[in-house]
Design a protein around this nucleic acid. Sequence first.
RNA 1: GGAGGAGUACCCAAGUCUGGCUGAAGGGGUCGGUCUUGAAAACCGAGAGGCGGGUAACACCGCGCGGGGGUUCGAAUCCCUCCUCCUCCGCCA
Length: 426
Amino acid sequence: MLDIKYVRAHYEEVKEKLSKRGEDLADFERFGELDTRRRELITQVEELKAERNESSQKIAEMKRNKENADEAIKKTRELGDRIKELDAELNTVEEDLNYIMMRVPNIPHESVPVGESEDDNVEIRKWGELPEFGFEAKPHWEVGTDLGILDFERAAKTTGSRFVFYKGAGAKLERALAAFMLDLHTEEHGYEEMLTPYMVNRASLTGTGQLPKFEEDAFLIEEEDYFLIPTAEVPVTNFHRDEILNGAELPHAYAAYSACFRSEAGSAGRDTRGLIRMHQFNKVELVHFAKPEDSYETLEKLTGHAEKVLQLLGLPYRVLKMCTADLGFTAAKKYDIEVWIPTQGTYREISSCSNFEDFQARRANIRFRREQGAKPEFVHTLNGSGLAIGRTVAAILENYQQEDGSVIIPEALRPYMGGKEKIEAK
RNA sequence: GGAGGAGUACCCAAGUCUGGCUGAAGGGGUCGGUCUUGAAAACCGAGAGGCGGGUAACACCGCGCGGGGGUUCGAAUCCCUCCUCCUCCGCCA
């Protein structure tokens, strides 16, 4: 959520910046009117309440002196009726204003390139040598299925489309990747490991920005009104919801492995085969709580931490700076890391690293105090995948496949695979 | 799932039956001071944090006793509802 006071003071500037995202701002036009009306009503209603408080005190005093207070009670009751009316109107206005503010996206940072679509994202660096095959490379789902380590058909039977079974060395590979990434981030990059609930309530999803606008993207447990998490970002960020953190202890950096659940509503027909787009996948997520003045430096570090995983695995990738049209709802600035998928002849997103500034912190009410007695300030939150594990498996199967159908295990992963160097068909 | 109990400020805790000078006693911790070579202890003193309105900034006002709603001139206190925690029983990985 944006700062109402800031929007009030810089309305035209904010509108201009938001328009660069290609966002429909029709509702936002009502901001000024609602904001003004809200403050008028507050002033009125609070004056009346002050009057009522005073009047009630007098009644109490009269009662104590055994005087007759009927007249005063009658007058005060009328005051109360008036307050009730104005309060009701105030509620409506606040609901309307809130409706708008909860649906306005974050303001892009000045360093974000202006663009109209994903085609305007800017490639800022590339790493690694693209593999060359002396044979016809197979897509990862064929590699995995032929090796007997992935089974999409049986997942379709037990559950439905966009699910998968990992078997044998495949299951172990997935587990090895999770352990490898967690160890790297906790031991080398200074993260604290976290294991979170896989279901969260509405308040949490609202805090991180998935609600109210994107409810259709999530899976809902209706009886409880809980949602399956689309990413560990949600529970980890909300871990500190409604808290005032000690500034001396910032930054906090957490690494959380979790399953992630996404309905993929609206992506029917896209990536229908393979591991790229599943309803359930595993991911190691990195989350930072930073002081405002440090958050952009943190974003660079965070992106570097995710890149390190790919470097150690020897997977070629590139980093894109997302343009204003492709920032998503909550980010002020975002880098996507894309890994090379040879059979598609292109790079595919495997990590997304964002600085939300105080956008989530304001929604989730996460603040910090620089020192004892200082005013609380909103923290900046950041997160990035480090990495999406299913897509990492896809990249390994494709990039490391051999002509005989086997797959070389990247060296960094071998300690986690019992020293094995290769996955072969049984 | 069944039966009870409880949520008060940074922490502990009184007040709730019997609504009104209680925005909340008391203690701990915290901060400042006295004492001390320094520290501890003791003693003295200070302080509700937060949100909203308002202000150039103060002042000032409103809201805050788990959340929401209601009754009343007036609610920590009465009523409804939801949430969380604890104890016992049952079930269970």
